[in-house]
């Protein structure tokens, strides 16, 4: 019979798995948002360029909080671009000219993925009575919901 170390035992828990998945989603989304910030063009340039900057800066802070929550649970956080991309499974934007609305739509899709995974994490944390993780997940859900609303509003036609 194998005895797991606390860190290894934690790594298999739904909460740590959920945190690492949300970490991957958030890191991948940050990279997508950065891509959109650099390459967006057209009449909405200034509004979108600035909005995307605010969003990736927010995500940069958020991923640190998520990763440190994993460490606080005595587990190890996921790391590395390949691992994040593989875990998140998000589609990247093509290189080259992309319509501004495609950037917005693609980011909405990525936020929706993060929302689904944050909701799963919230429920797992609630079931385990881990209120600190649940609080973190609720905060992430609220922010992704708000950002999705803003991005959806941009796509609305007159």
């Amino acid at each position: 019979m194998k005895t797991l170390t606390p860190a290894k035992a934690q790594a298999t828990s739904p909460i740590v798995k959920g945190l690492n998945l949300l970490l991957a989603d958030s890191y991948a989304l940050m990279a997508l948002t950065h891509h959109a910030h650099w390459n967006v063009e057209g009449p909405g340039f200034f509004a979108l360029h600035n909005a995307f900057q605010g969003q990736y800066e927010h995500l940069f802070t958020a991923i640190d909080d998520i990763a440190e929550r994993v460490r606080a649970l005595d587990a190890y956080s996921l790391g590395g671009l390949r691992a994040f991309a593989q875990e998140a499974g998000l589609e990247e934007f093509p290189t080259g000219s992309v319509p501004a609305r495609d950037y917005v739509a693609g980011l909405i899709v990525a936020h929706e993925k993060a929302l689904v995974d944050a909701t799963t994490l919230r429920d797992a944390a609630g079931a385990a009575n881990d209120l600190e993780t649940q609080d973190l997940a609720i905060g992430r859900i609220a922010w992704h919901q708000k950002t999705t609303w803003m991005l959806r509003s941009y796509l609305k036609s007159v």
Partner: peptide, 13 residues
């Protein structure tokens, strides 16, 4: 496409 851009985008991708 004008009114439902997001749905069009999802379908397209």
């Amino acid at each position: 496409e004008e009114r439902h851009y997001l749905a069009c985008y999802r379908l397209r991708r």
